[in-house]
């Protein structure tokens, strides 16, 4: 199930399906292009800003934790057609990790396309069985005694993680804090840290 190119027969099937739908006037190239552009625009910056603001503004934090969908809408993101968004608050004692064991459910509107590994059989099966081993593969080692809570995103409810604000960020602006938060932090496989090597996708 690695990220391989599609087979020729799949390319042919897509071309035939598109042609049949267009012939009947059900879809147009323009509609498909619009959807594609809107999917391409969704990216982790939105989620990162939601996190950064929660670190600064207690009222916003309360809204975010109470109703993630409303918080995203308040950021100007249309959540129409999306299932409800829940936000999991990391604390000094509890770390959250998000997985979709059944497929690939993911809050795309606020963090973009899911990475391939999120959809992989290895991540889906192991995240609930041995989360600490999976976290270690991402280079994340939690302090001893910290509880790990694994939460399943589903077709009907999506989750993101609100990580703890890292040490050493006192007095930082919202923009600075936003730049610190990555997609993986909001899935819970990594933790935001000052000065980490930004080798993974933001």
């Amino acid at each position: 199930m690695a990220n391989q190119p599609p087979r020729a027969e799949s390319l042919a099937l897509l071309a035939k399906l598109e042609a049949a739908l267009k012939r009947r006037g059900i879809v147009s190239d323009e509609e498909i292009e619009l959807k594609r552009a809107s999917a391409d625009r969704a990216n982790p910056m939105t989620g990162a800003r939601m996190v950064a603001r929660a670190w600064i503004d207690p009222e916003w934090r309360a809204l975010l934790l109470r109703d993630g969908t409303a918080a995203a809408e308040a950021m100007g993101i249309s959540m129409r057609g999306n299932p409800p968004l829940g936000v999991l608050e990391d604390t000094a004692g509890v770390h959250h990790l998000v997985v979709c064991t059944l497929c690939s459910c993911y809050p795309r509107a606020i963090i973009g396309y899911p990475p391939h590994w999120y959809k992989s059989a290895a991540y889906r099966s192991r995240a609930v069985r041995e989360p600490r081993a999976v976290l270690a593969e991402f280079g994340t080692v939690l302090p001893a005694g910290m509880q790990v809570r694994v939460v399943d995103s589903t077709a009907d409810f999506r989750w993101m993680v609100l990580p703890q604000r890292p040490a050493g960020t006192e007095g930082w602006t919202e923009d600075q804090l936003t730049a610190l938060v990555t997609r993986d932090d909001m899935v819970g496989v990594t933790l935001p840290r000052v000065g980490r090597r930004e080798s993974r996708a933001a």
């Binding site: 599609p6 598109e18 498909i32 594609r36 990475p115 290895a122 099966s125 069985r129 399943d152």
Partner: peptide, 29 residues
């Protein structure tokens, strides 16, 4: 969830490129 078949399969954490053209077309359709 918990399926032992993949117990020893590492998570390919570098495998995180966005979908290819085919994937984006399917998704948009």
């Amino acid at each position: 969830g918990g399926n032992p078949r993949f117990r020893c399969t590492p998570v390919e954490i570098e495998d995180d490129a966005p979908p290819d053209d085919f994937g984006k077309r399917v998704d948009a359709l």
